[in-house]
Design a protein around this nucleic acid. Structure first.
Lengths: 231, 231
DNA sequence: CGCGAACTTGACGCGAACTTGACGCGCGGG
DNA sequence: CCCGCGCGTCAAGTTCGCGTCAAGTTCGCG
């Protein structure tokens, strides 16, 4: 049971800032991965998922929030946004998009480190580690490509179907309640429309089950929710 | 089965600030509990555990960090520190003491609310406070998977049976009265239908007892309630 | 402006789960 | 000794949740 070294991905285009962050993190025992653009960041995050992400919003090739949202589809790894923008709107947007914290430049090293510790504490308590590609039996969910295959054959899923499957895959074996699924996919105001689930789960079964009437993978727990069998 | 309203405990001694916070929170659908001192806060937190805590550090009767540490010993409820002190040391100390976020006054309403949403999101993702899996003799109750096994074999329980068993398992060895069981499973309006219990307990025994006529685990305390033996 | 994909909404049948009532048993007290 | 009470059992009867289908409705795109 040796303490694993956490790696932090730094997404930042300005070189001096990047060097500063690298030094601060490395000197406190973190492994540091770096990306100077969205493209690089996306590659880094899928190829070697880090334990935490420091994300600068002012990137040359696009909005950092896009990356954030993309990552949030399959990973719960903590993301701390580091930005020069200190308008409240920016903060709210980022936090609601899935960021775990928002730090405005300039900031102190020790505060940054403390907030990283908080983020890692949360991630550890929660446990679930996520891979960009998940395999359950014959079902393969590739988040980077946004693609699902069953037994090697590509399957087209609608946005809602994809999100449902992704959520279930993220918690293989566990039951997700109606409420949880509805909140994640349709938003907090739709937690009683359980009929949505019936319709879309049926559609999902038609696409990923050999015999949709006798589901082998997508199990329903009557009165509770749905579950993706692991086995 | 109604949508639960999250309650936020505001620990703050200055009245105007408290009123401001109360207004901001209440108008966004939160229930608000208030405390003006450490003493009050401690009482509030143990008597009616809130889903999140807003903690001001400058309290008249002691350091807010003491409260934080005390609470952290038994609860993981998110704590957001709200303080006028903006020295980095203060932030680091609070965060390392278990705070989930640190906001310096003055701050905007919308940012505060966004950060509360983040905190609640974390708390929810982390799941209930209960142990995920309980073991009583050969009986295994796995909450996350919503699955019960007896001697290794999976047993299918109906929703009501599952909730009954889960309740009893949560208090192994202790007697749960008819009233308690009925209230938890059927709601407060059904506390006199003790016949429900007889029927469903019988069904439960058929599924988890080797000899349902001579129950080894699910004991009945005549005139009082039921109990799950801890051997 | 029209088309198609995706989503919402409603109706319906089926089976599981729950409720309800009748009955028998053991036990303790009148 | 018999009666009442609480419990377990069983078998109806009824409700409820789920899956299915199909008819709207919305929305983006050509």
């Amino acid at each position: 049971m040796t303490e694993p070294v956490d790696t932090v991905l730094v997404v930042e285009d300005e070189v001096p800032m990047r060097r500063f962050l690298r030094a601060a993190l490395a000197s406190h025992g973190f492994r540091v991965a770096e990306a100077g653009s969205l493209r690089e960041a996306e590659r880094a995050v899928t190829e070697a998922p880090p334990q935490a992400i420091l994300l600068d919003l002012g990137l040359p090739d696009g909005d950092g929030l896009d990356l954030l949202r993309r990552v949030r589809e399959w990973s719960t790894a903590p993301v701390i946004v580091v930005s020069a923008r200190e308008r409240e709107d920016d903060k709210v947007t980022a936090l609601d998009a899935g960021a775990d914290d928002y730090l405005t430049k300039p900031f102190g090293t020790s505060e940054l480190l403390a907030r990283i510790r908080v983020a890692l504490r949360h991630a550890r308590a929660q446990g679930g580690s996520a891979e960009p590609v998940m395999v359950i039996g014959p079902i393969r969910v590739d988040h980077a490509r946004h693609e699902v295959t069953v037994g090697g054959a590509a399957v087209h899923l609608t946005p809602i179907e994809f999100r449902l499957l992704a959520l279930l895959a993220q918690h293989v074996g566990k039951v997700l309640t109606h409420r949880q699924l509805l909140r994640e996919v349709w938003g907090p105001r739709a937690t009683q429309h359980t009929h949505y689930l019936r319709v879309h789960m049926a559609a999902l079964r038609r696409k990923i089950e050999a015999d949709p009437a006798r589901p082998r993978w997508l199990a329903t727990e009557a009165g509770v929710g749905y579950r993706l069998r692991d086995e």
